[in-house]
Design a protein around this nucleic acid. Structure first.
Lengths: 222, 222
DNA sequence: AATTTTGGTTACTGGTCGGTCACTTTTGCG
DNA sequence: CGCAAAAGTGACCGACCAGTAACCAAAATT
């Protein structure tokens, strides 16, 4: 064993880092061009390597697509747990959790990562992602029910409410421009503040986010 | 010229009918499998003809995709005009117009038709669809501003509001199951009632749609 | 009945893309 | 240095798919 063990990025660590970079870039391209429309050559070119090099980090295209979805779901789960911890009412938990999810997806990951088009996944990988997604939706529905019980959310159909929330969130990948004037965190906060108003039993009299108060509408056309 | 001219479907009319059928089926398949993932053989098989036969009604795949989007935008424009006529406030116009759009898309067209993945379109056709879509979004934004002016909508960023509305609407194609218990019109009404609550200056104390009042949650998983 | 027009079929082609293979280059290490 | 393992390359293969061509059948027209 050498001295400075783990002081400098170690072999397996670098490997994992490169794998992450591939996944991130792939997600970006899958998102823009569609899962089938994007080619592995595109991904490789973007990273400045040859397509064959990708196969040292990923078994095949389906596996890569799976990894993209898996990372997205990991973020979704983690942020929702944060929301459940820090929110007081069911509504707050949803707003905080989903806002953090959205901010991380379009912010730190640099770009809208793709969640649409799950149907492009095949085989066992598809089943695993479906299971994760269903579990996430169940958690959200439970929070809606909790919110109805604690009086923060108006009585409504939880399934429909969750579908509406997810639609508003996922659609962001279609119009958000990371080079525009809106920062990711602002967009996430403003959008969730707005959309949770649809659920709120007593909606606030006004919207507080900077974007709603009249920030310049940036060039955000897709 | 024969008697009964136009009494029986005439040649050009039948041609147009078949073209519509192709477009509808294509939209269905594009929607499910993604624009690039769907093949023209799929569409042809579904219609019980050979792929080559399609080319008598459609110039190429891009043209077919264009036709799908064009029809969707035609419906969007028409229904929004209806909404503008029959609604009193800005908010009502949005709710009525978009509800009719949604109902027609997932109801009469039988199936979620695809609006996502515009980026799959290429060439001049893409520009034309972008123009239609932008015009539609501008109309919606104008209605939001009108609603803010007439007091039906809370002051907010119109761009963000429209993006949220569109997200909630378009996402329906991901989860709505035409064979489920929810009728298309009910879903459209309930969803728009819910989502417009996010904009409303004075939201109603309760939601009136059947689905919100506790209809059985159908098997609507994608 | 003869003929043109229309709607359709089967078979094929050319290009694209996922995936592999044989080979070279780089890198960590004793 | 010497060398083995890891990382990466370019060429290639096979499958798939949009689009075409040659050909056939059934109408409509005359």
């Amino acid at each position: 064993m050498t001295r400075w063990a783990n002081a400098v990025p170690d072999r397996a660590e670098q490997q994992e880092l490169k794998r992450k970079a591939i996944i991130r870039e792939a997600a970006r391209i899958f998102s823009r061009r569609g899962c089938h429309g994007a080619t592995l050559d595109d991904v490789a070119d973007r990273l400045g390597v040859s397509k064959a090099a990708l196969y040292r980090y990923v078994r095949n295209k389906n596996d890569l697509l799976f990894a993209c979805h898996e990372e997205a779901m990991e973020i979704a789960d983690r942020t929702l747990t944060e929301g459940e911890r820090s929110g007081r009412t069911g509504l707050e938990k949803i707003r905080i959790g989903m806002s953090a999810y959205l901010a991380e997806m379009i912010g730190e990951l640099g770009v809208p990562v793709l969640i649409l088009e799950e149907n492009a996944l095949q085989g066992e990988e598809a089943e695993r992602i479906y299971a994760l997604r269903d579990a996430y939706e169940r958690r959200l529905r439970a929070l809606v029910e909790q919110g109805i019980a604690d009086g923060s959310i108006l009585p409504m159909n939880p399934k429909l409410a969750v579908f509406m929330l997810l639609g508003a969130i996922h659609w962001v990948t279609k119009w958000y421009n990371p080079d525009g004037a809106w920062r990711a965190g602002e967009v996430a906060e403003a959008l969730m503040e707005l959309v949770t108003r649809a659920l709120a039993a007593q909606p606030p009299a006004a919207l507080g986010s900077a974007i709603h108060r009249g920030a310049a509408p940036a060039g955000t056309e897709p």
